[in-house]
């Protein structure tokens, strides 16, 4: 499970980076009636066995869509997003090593879960969707933390 995979990821620093830009990002998100990461809001939605795969898919989602679709003018926010993006890249490498040890199996349910995230993302124009997804990083980080809890104690 994820507990074994992400032992060397500095969740505290990523959370602190996001904390610094959370208010600004969420204030600009005017579509309060859409949650891109709704699938993560209930622990029952994703089985422990699917956690590693969903994490990997969502890291790819942020890498290939969110961080690239978002346009940002504030240097401070650019820096924080760069910090998070590079931390996610490192997290992916760590998960990739897990993949080789076959701790990161991808079931159909895991793929469906990721599909709902992309579907929610596609409901909005790309810039609004990217902004909203950045504002929801606290949901993603809290979900990783909960599933990574044993090794972060």
């Amino acid at each position: 499970s994820l507990k074994r995979c992400l032992i060397s990821v500095d969740m505290r620093f990523i959370e602190k980076s996001f904390q610094g830009i959370k208010r600004e990002l969420q204030a600009k998100d005017t579509f309060q009636n859409v949650t891109v990461l709704s699938i993560l809001e209930s622990p029952k939605n994703i089985k422990p066995a699917d956690v590693c795969c969903v994490t990997k898919h969502l890291l790819t989602f942020y890498r290939d869509r969110v961080f690239q679709d978002h346009q940002e003018s504030s240097p401070q926010i650019v820096r924080k997003i760069s910090s998070i993006a590079n931390s996610f890249l490192y997290m992916q490498k760590t998960l990739h090593q897990c993949q080789e040890q076959r701790w990161c199996h991808c079931s159909q349910e895991a793929t469906n879960a990721t599909r709902t995230v992309h579907d929610n993302y596609d409901q909005l124009d790309v810039h609004s969707a990217a902004l909203k997804s950045l504002g929801e990083l606290d949901i993603f980080l809290a979900w990783i933390d909960k599933n990574h809890q044993e090794t972060s104690a």
Binding site: D64, F67, S83, N86, L89
Partner: peptide
Amino acid sequence: GEYESLYT
């Protein structure tokens, strides 16, 4: 960072 050098 590596993210920028690879993707942007």
